[in-house]
Nucleic acid binder design. Structure first.
Length: 496
RNA sequence: GUCCCCAUCGUCCAGAGGCCGAGGACGCGGCCCUUUCAAGGCCGAAACCCGGGUUCGAAUCCCGGUGGGGACGCCA
């Protein structure tokens, strides 16, 4: 049997979410950095599901996370649904390995059994807290007498396994932060295997990173303080630790860790709000990282090409939704019409609007609307007048533009003129509108605004001539005539 | 409280001792374009946290302070 040594080919990185929640934008960015690093260096991107917390993990969450990653275009080389030579990729399927590792640590004197009750530990912590101090495990079980152990075992007392933290000085070179050192005395003898025989995060993450041949650990800043524990574990297991790169956290506008109260935090939510995956990726990439120059709009290929861990900033970053919106608008403006159509369709459907069967016409409509859209959801409202049979007149539009004298007559005249405008294209339609206004002695604006209300029901829309042409002669004329009727009956109503 | 990380415009970044009288982007203000709304173009306001060093010279290096964040679980 041949062992594949991918590390010789390129770096192996991993994204290891725990399915206790949806895919958070912070997690997505961590995944993105890992992915970019793997792609940049022709390495391997591994996806591993950390579901050792059986209580809080769920299969639905796994599905959601996978969907989120796929939507962003972050494909994994090894992991759920694609498999790979270093599986299983769910920690729940690797329990025996963690138990074996824990047993080995005990056998080799790096860990010991701990029979302390959770209640006692909790009490000690509370007491210490009351004194304003932090409590560290007191090693009560480190040197239990053999007889005592025999007693405890005889009654099958629950036992956990704790790592015996050596006094070795733990320091490491972090790619984004430089050298980070911890005083080993500040690290307690942490549990590696719970009394229910399940590993803690520290054990599973290290065992997996070893067995999966991970060369670079790119993860959130919040793991810095866990790193010395991991380092110690790697050492006890006799393995050279991977290289670490701790990326800063994403904060909300109040500089607190981004959470639900700041608004949307899940990738799925942004997707629903009408953001394009490419914009999301671009934006996330620039949160805490920069290519080193002033480029803002970078394609995935460009990101891959310029990504480097050294370019990651050390400070936390505030999630700036306004910039995301702007960026999304930029991507909407540039997306090929065909792709934009596909992206917009579900949002039209959600709004109860029909998707035009004439693709060419649909594309022209989209081209008219796109400079006005920041999110895909905007298209529903923007497109409504073009997709419904009868437009509704917005009250303020009626007030603002239909009260001028003789508006009805002007509009009627335009309707008549438009019947014979040939060809019915922008230059000719514009000439007709302006000509009609001139003939009737009103400023073009008056007629234009009234006409806009007639065909869209609103005070704002894309350029009126483009709108008329896109709607076509029949619909345009019909809408103008309908407005004439509307004004007539409205006046009648007022008189009586 | 202890340990760790961080510190340039409101926000995201550029800046790795002289090129910085600090550059880009979002947002904001103004002007232009214009039938409205956008988009676009141009212009503008806006920052090196404070105090000590080191150096001929510091946004850049060192120390301290302050501020912000994170971690202190048989959660991950």
């Amino acid at each position: 049997m041949r062992i594949t040594h991918n590390s010789a080919v390129g770096p192996r990185v991993r994204f290891a979410p725990s399915p206790t929640g949806y895919l958070h934008v912070g997690g997505a960015r961590t995944a993105l950095f890992n992915w970019l690093y793997a792609r940049r260096h022709r390495g391997t991107f591994v996806l591993r599901i950390e579901d050792t917390d059986v209580q809080r993990s769920s299969a639905d969450m796994v599905t959601g996370i996978l969907e989120g990653l796929r939507w962003l275009g972050l494909d994994w080389d090894e992991g759920p649904e694609v498999g790979g030579p270093r599986g299983p990729y769910f920690q729940s399927g690797r329990l025996d390995r963690y138990r074996a590792a824990a047993a080995r640590l005990v056998a080799e004197g790096h860990a010991y059994y701990c029979y302390c009750s959770p209640e006692r530990l909790r009490d000690e912590r509370e007491k210490a807290e009351a004194r304003g101090e932090a409590w560290q495990y007191d090693r009560a079980c480190l040197n239990l007498a053999p007889e005592r152990i025999a007693e405890l075992e005889a009654v099958a007392a629950p036992r956990a396994i704790r790592f015996k933290v050596p006094s070795t000085h733990t320091a490491f070179e972090d790619i984004v932060h430089g050298r980070i050192a911890f005083d080993p005395r500040s690290i307690e003898d942490f549990v590696v295997l719970r009394s229910d025989n399940h590993p803690t995060y520290h054990l599973s993450v290290v065992v997996d990173d070893v067995e999966m041949g991970i060369t670079h650990v790119i993860r959130g800043d919040d793991h810095i303080s866990n790193t010395p524990k991991h380092l110690l574990l790697f050492e006890a297991l006799g393995v050279t630790p991977p290289t670490f790169a701790h990326v800063p956290l994403i904060l909300g506008a109040d500089k607190k860790r981004l959470s639900k109260r700041h608004g949307a935090t899940s990738v799925t939510e942004y997707r629903r709000q009408g953001y394009l995956p490419a914009a999301m990726v671009n934006f996330l990439a620039l949160l805490g990282w920069s290519p080193g120059d002033d480029r803002e709009l970078l394609s995935v290929a460009e990101l891959v090409d310029s990504f480097s861990l050294e370019g990651i900033s050390g400070g936390n970053a505030v999630f700036n939704v306004e910039k995301l919106e702007w960026m999304n608008g930029q991507y909407i403006a540039r997306l090929p019409a065909g792709e934009l159509a596909g992206a917009v369709e579900p949002f039209l459907a959600d709004a109860g609007l029909p998707v035009p069967r004439d693709r060419g016409w649909f594309h022209r409509l989209l081209d008219l609307l796109r400079p006005r859209a920041k999110r895909l959801t905007d298209f529903a409202e923007l497109a409504r007048p073009f997709l419904v049979d009868t437009v509704e007149y917005e009250p303020h539009a009626v007030e603002k533009h239909l009260d001028a004298p003789d508006v009805g007559a002007h509009v009627a005249a335009l309707a008549a003129a438009l019947r014979t405008t040939d060809p019915f294209d922008e230059p000719h339609v514009e000439a007709t509108v302006r000509g009609t206004a001139a003939e009737r002695g009103v400023k073009a604006g008056v007629l234009i605004h009234a006409t806009r209300v007639a065909v869209t029901g609103r005070t704002t829309s894309p350029g009126l001539f483009e709108v008329l042409v896109l709607l076509g002669r029949e619909r345009s004329v019909a809408r103008l005539e309908r407005l004439v009727n509307f004004l007539a009956t409205r006046r009648a109503g007022r008189v009586s």
